[in-house]
Design a protein around this nucleic acid. Structure first.
Lengths: 346, 346
DNA sequence: TTGAAAGCGCTAACAA
DNA sequence: TTGTTAGCGCTTTCAA
């Protein structure tokens, strides 16, 4: 009684619950510190009566367990590091969402940083994150510096590379072949009867790879590629509009299909076409990438490549969890595929 | 020489650098463990020759400092907890970006979770985050459960509440008055000559607060509010389209201004209007909120409320850093304001 | 079912 | 400039 009063006073005062430890709780409940630890990690290992007293003590003190100490002692941080190129791009965000949901359901929190599109920036962040001893690592893409790979391998934790596929993953990789996306877009363009095409792309490496394979296949099968416009930074509606303008004004594009690196670019093209009173898809056909939320609700509705982002996130999380719990050791590769969704814009 | 060889062998082998500690590095460099710690935290406290040997030892071993142990010993985790309603909404993401950039420049990493729009979910996440002993806490909005406030106050760390303003912040708060936004929208509508108005909103509390103050002011000053449509979840283009449809079909809206809870909604309305061949802004005027990237590039360009999201993020970070370094104790409140940007849609 | 003892890998005094 | 000594608050054996 007296004790609890003391504790309440402290809680009301200056530096409170931060100082409450398992030892404090144990003292109040009349048990040792270890018993408190057990009660929290596995209640079945503690008698119901003891459990109750501990619970009361926790309520009184407002005890919040110190996961830092726990992590140091157990060598498990319950933290997952994640590096994404951009927080603002809803493409990455929407897959991150399903990834983190599943992780959190299993007791893991996310240490998230934005790494941009440069491997050197990523390398520094990997070092910073590894010092926090995450239990697993999420990376976007398959291109990393040699030192980054080395550090990651040295850390001896599950590493998942998402959004792309390679024969030599660091550990696990979940994604799809961007080259095949380009091919599918080219085949579609040809089969739909578009003899002329242009491309508008953002500056990231995967987008450029899709574009290159599109152009190769399209040309190889007899299409005429009128011009390629690319921007060094991320996709945006503004770039989409400027992209169509440049295709027309600088490359003499008059009609045909435009293959975009993302739905956002495609949206910009739709708007610029509308402004210039060019009919879509008759004069200008537009093919997006991503099948973002808005794609089906544009006017005309966007024909695009759908990537199942929730599945991407879920698969990545499942692969990590399997390693973490099950403990399987073999490298794994999951091809999530993609799908061309034909709507009205092409 | 021998030692370094041993270490290399271990690194190539099974469980490597994870086991390398400051003690290992020190042994290799011929100094004690503390000297390694000093060399890393403040090189000026160590002689250049020693520094060099330590650096070599680090390179050879691939040593990655254990920040978990560091945090436990120093009681500073260099971690900032952040809870945002949604990762996919670029509105929150773009402010988080500037927040995290500034934090990272000062050596802090982000523990980020999505908390949705319910205070109960948030409460659980707050508890989980606090157990990791973050050095500061970032919250979205000012509505939290009593227990959440209590835990946060008990943690005795800087807490910043962003996106809204209140007279009773937990600690620091940075935002603007949503009520004033509604008033500004109403005043604009009236002064621009729109006698009829409708609203389309997402389900979050701040959006609803803006809408309510819009409706109050607009009606009070003589405008006629034809109808309000709201959705229980987040804003989207699809909801924008459906919103206009419902305003017209269910509320008999024929002409006037539509005040939206976000630019995304506004965009949907623009598209639906185009589809229905209603001219904007002549028959239907549209007023957005947020001034997102795309707003200026829609057709017609969107008239909207600009909130300086980078400034929001930077201010929040600066306030935290000031507390963390300077150590000032007084509560602070920063009104970041907002601005109506008139373009073509209204 | 419970407890005692020994660390986890660092930082923070205090000495030398 | 460097080292010694104590912890930080937990988890992990190992005993009782």
């Amino acid at each position: 009684m007296n004790k609890s009063l003391n504790l309440r006073t402290r809680t009301a005062g200056g530096r409170p619950s931060g100082r409450v430890t398992m030892a404090t709780v144990g003292r109040l409940a009349g048990v040792s510190q270890v018993t408190v630890s057990r009660a929290l990690s596995d209640p079945s290992k503690v008698s119901p009566a003891t459990m109750q007293r501990i619970q009361d003590a926790i309520d009184i003190t407002g005890f919040v367990p110190n996961a830092v100490a726990g992590a140091l002692a157990s060598r498990r941080s319950k933290l997952i590091s994640a590096l994404v190129p951009s927080l603002t791009s809803s493409v990455y965000a929407s897959m991150m969402q399903s990834f983190s949901d599943l992780m959190r359901d299993n007791g893991y929190e996310l240490l998230l940083s934005e790494c941009g599109f440069q491997a050197e920036t990523e390398e520094k962040l990997i070092a910073a994150h590894l010092s926090r001893r995450p239990d697993a690592f999420y990376l976007t893409g398959i291109h990393h510096t040699a030192r980054a790979r080395q550090m990651l391998i040295g850390a001896d934790i599950p590493v998942v590379e998402v959004w792309d596929l390679t024969d030599a993953p660091i550990d696990i990789c979940v994604g799809f072949h961007h080259r095949e996306v380009g091919w599918a877009m080219a085949d579609f363009a040809l089969e739909a009867g578009y003899k002329y095409a242009g491309t508008v792309s953002a500056g990231d490496e995967r987008a450029l790879r899709r574009r290159d394979s599109f152009v190769d296949r399209y040309s190889a099968r007899g299409g005429t590629c009128v011009g390629n416009v690319s921007f060094s930074d991320s996709a945006s509606v503004a770039h989409g509009r400027a992209g169509l303008a440049r295709l027309i004004d600088e490359h003499g594009f008059t009609s045909g299909l435009i293959a975009c690196s993302s739905d956002l670019m495609a949206q910009g093209i739709l708007i610029e076409a509308q402004k210039r009173k060019l009919s879509v898809p008759d004069q200008i056909a537009v093919l997006g990438f991503g099948d973002q939320d808005f794609a089906a609700y544009l006017e005309p509705a966007l024909t695009t490549i759908r990537v199942d982002r929730p599945a991407l996130g879920t698969s990545a999380a499942q692969a990590i969890l399997k390693r973490l719990h099950g403990g399987s050791r073999e490298q794994s590769r999951v091809d999530i595929g993609f799908q061309l969704i034909r709507r009205e814009s092409a």
